[in-house]
């Protein structure tokens, strides 16, 4: 049985179609990622699943309960961490935790085993007001609060946005640990590089899902040959490469440019064509989630 079952959900705000026929399933105990830029509809989807919004069309079940009819049952079973930091800034770390425990009618001690691995990291600051914490610590506190009632499903909306690389990586480690304890996690992020930390991902853009699969299989769907090219003058290289024979597409990709080649592409011929570009370096490269995302967006 699926922990989350979304069927053909649409939701509009005025003229803007935030969600446009979204469907997917999340298995029990799965770490499922919604990957997509701002405006992809991730937050709206979370709000619908967290029973804060009713969909215009379609329906969904969370933990076997209908999001419209049984929303009270769902509210008892899910932990929700909204995109913005949404704890009481003027309460201390400890007070926030106690407040949320009281809100769900539980005792902190009863869930301490679940919360402890995360909470212990911020415990030294427990008398500090939540508003004074760093980005990474705020996220840990918010996660602790979302876990306090032992939810069976966790909704995390962009938990790593605005958090530095070290805290981000720690945060993903924590999610992996929670998954081990059988909690189903639905998490969203705009960072493609975080996709590999999920069991399965859905690439979303402008209210639609471009593709759903495991990160490896998503990338495997990239069927063109891809090269990474470098040169001393990256901009001139980009312009020149686009004009070269057999180059279907070329776009900046961090340190190198990624180039999608046709069947007739020939490396030696390419080098000859770009003889004027100094320090030219070309090698085949493996596509990443981001390459796939670009490909899917263009389809």
């Amino acid at each position: 049985m699926s922990a989350i079952k979304v069927e053909n959900i649409s939701k509009s705000f005025g003229k803007v179609k935030a969600l446009d026929g979204i469907s997917f399933d999340v298995k029990r105990g799965e770490l499922f990622g919604l990957i997509g830029p701002d405006g992809a509809g991730k937050t709206t989807l979370f709000r619908v699943l967290a029973t804060l919004l009713n969909p215009d069309e379609g329906g969904a079940e969370v933990d076997g309960f209908d999001i419209v009819k049984d929303y009270h049952a769902i509210r008892e079973r899910v932990g929700y961490m909204p995109g913005r930091f949404s704890l009481y800034q003027d309460l201390t770390v400890e007070e926030n935790l106690n407040f949320f425990a009281a809100l769900f009618g539980v005792k902190v001690e009863d869930s301490y085993d679940l919360v402890a691995p995360i909470y212990r990291q911020i415990e030294p600051f427990k008398t500090r007001r939540a508003g004074k914490l760093s980005g990474g610590m705020k996220q840990k506190l918010a996660l602790s609060c979302a876990l306090i009632h032992r939810p069976s499903v966790l909704f995390l909306d962009e938990p790593t946005t605005g958090v530095d690389a070290v805290s981000r990586s720690e945060f993903w480690d924590m999610l992996a640990d929670l998954k081990q304890r059988g909690i189903t996690i639905l998490v969203s992020t705009p960072y493609m590089d975080e996709a590999s930390r999920c069991d399965r991902i859905a690439l979303c853009n402008e209210g639609r899902i471009l593709g759903i699969d495991t990160p490896t299989d998503i990338v495997a769907g990239f069927d063109s040959s891809l090269y990474a090219i470098k040169g001393d003058n990256m901009y001139q290289l980009l312009l020149a490469a686009r004009k070269a024979n057999g180059v279907r597409e070329c776009y900046p990709f961090g340190e190198a440019h990624h180039m999608i080649a046709d069947a007739e592409f020939d490396v030696e011929q390419f080098k000859a064509e770009l003889v004027e570009v100094k320090g030219l370096h070309i090698e085949p490269t493996k596509p990443s989630i981001e390459d796939m995302f670009i490909k899917l967006m263009k389809q």
Binding site: P37, T161, P190, P252
Partner: peptide
């Protein structure tokens, strides 16, 4: 938070 295509156009 920008989509990959827009992002590339921007870096360009």
């Amino acid at each position: 938070g920008v989509d990959p295509i827009t992002r590339r156009q921007f870096w360009e």
